[in-house]
């Protein structure tokens, strides 16, 4: 079994920032595992602008933001970046099992930083009546299909929920030549940034229905339409307000949850409600020497805050390893 001072799982902005800070604080033997074929994480599919204003004092696209850190990390010695390396197991004494194409490896670490990001919630779908045809996607998955795979998943779209990813995708679909029939938001206001309401929704005259929810989905093999209905302050349907929206695709943009299955295997206490590690201090967990940062610690709105807090995680790990002073 290989041994390493520090193993970092995840090569998105949080994992890269943590690695850089750990190195700069004296950790000299770092292995960074990333399951994808490139670094950058979710930023690679966020091709729009709006990143980095705080950290770089410039407006960057997601890939440009990632590129800055990729260049920086490649320029540092002592950080081994292992791509196509999927961590699948972890123990309390810090042994990480990972898959590389065609083989399985194990590494014993003295400290671990988890930077595995988050995944999209989809649970809300379960409560909607009607059929279960194809054509229902999470907004982030649709983003990946369009921006990475070059596939347009539908021609007539309704977006459920008005988080930033949903708003950004509304614009993307219109630019790609699809029709967005509406955004349906159960709350009285958007969960996303106002600027995204302006530049993604108003710019393209997309109807946005606040205080509405979907009550039924129609379609046999593929989505054909849905019913939207107005709700009162207790989210109960108001009778007589129902109307149909034609669509072949429904995008769910109803929020994110941290991805933390691996540390749970290692015995780290997880808060069931948020899926974040139980923690008294930023980036720390119930197991000394196992740290969590970025969207796997808690869901962040802005990547600049992810970077700031993940740099702190790298320093914490260095302190734990006796390399840096607290």
């Amino acid at each position: 079994m290989i041994e390493r001072e520090l193993v970092i799982v995840g090569g998105g902005p949080s994992g890269m920032a943590a690695a850089i800070a750990a190195r700069e604080n004296g950790v000299k033997d770092i292995l960074l595992l990333e399951r994808d074929q490139y670094l950058g994480g979710i930023l690679n599919q966020c091709v729009h602008t709006g990143f980095g204003l705080e950290y770089f004092k410039e407006v960057l696209t997601g890939p440009e933001y990632a590129d800055r850190f990729i260049k920086k990390i490649r320029g540092l010695p002592d950080i081994e970046i292992s791509l196509r390396s999927f961590a699948v197991g972890m123990t309390g004494d810090k042994v990480v099992t990972f898959l590389k194409p065609g083989r399985m490896e194990r590494v014993k670490a003295r400290a671990i930083i988890m930077a595995t990001g988050c995944r999209e919630k989809t649970r809300e779908m379960v409560h909607i009546a009607g059929t279960r045809p194809s054509g229902i996607f999470s907004a982030g998955f649709a983003q990946k299909l369009i921006n990475i795979e070059g596939l347009l998943p539908g021609k007539e779209v309704v977006i459920v929920g008005s988080g930033d990813i949903g708003l950004i995708m509304a614009r993307r679909f219109v630019l790609e030549g699809a029709k967005v029939s509406g955004v349906v938001e159960i709350q009285g206001q958007s969960r996303g940034l106002v600027r995204n309401i302006v530049q993604c929704i108003e710019d393209f005259d997309i109807p946005i229905y606040f205080n509405h929810k979907i009550s039924r989905i129609y379609g046999r093999d593929r989505v054909e339409a849905l019913d939207a209905v107005r709700v009162d302050e207790n989210f109960n349907e108001i009778s007589g307000t129902k109307f149909a929206l034609k669509c072949d695709t429904i995008l769910m943009s109803v929020g994110l949850i941290p991805e933390n299955e691996l540390i749970e295997m290692a015995g780290v206490a997880i808060d069931r409600k948020t899926n974040s590690p139980v923690s008294e201090e930023l980036n720390k967990t119930s197991v000394p020497g196992i740290f969590v940062c970025g969207n796997s610690f808690k869901v962040y709105d802005i990547v600049d805050s992810v970077t700031r807090d993940s740099l702190a995680a790298g320093k914490l790990a260095a302190e734990y390893l006796g390399r840096a002073r607290a």
Partner: peptide, 20 residues
Amino acid sequence: RVLTSSVLTESLELKLAPVK
């Protein structure tokens, strides 16, 4: 508005290259 999108590639490692 600054426009961001992706362009199709030929014989490159990724199917799409993001642009602005």
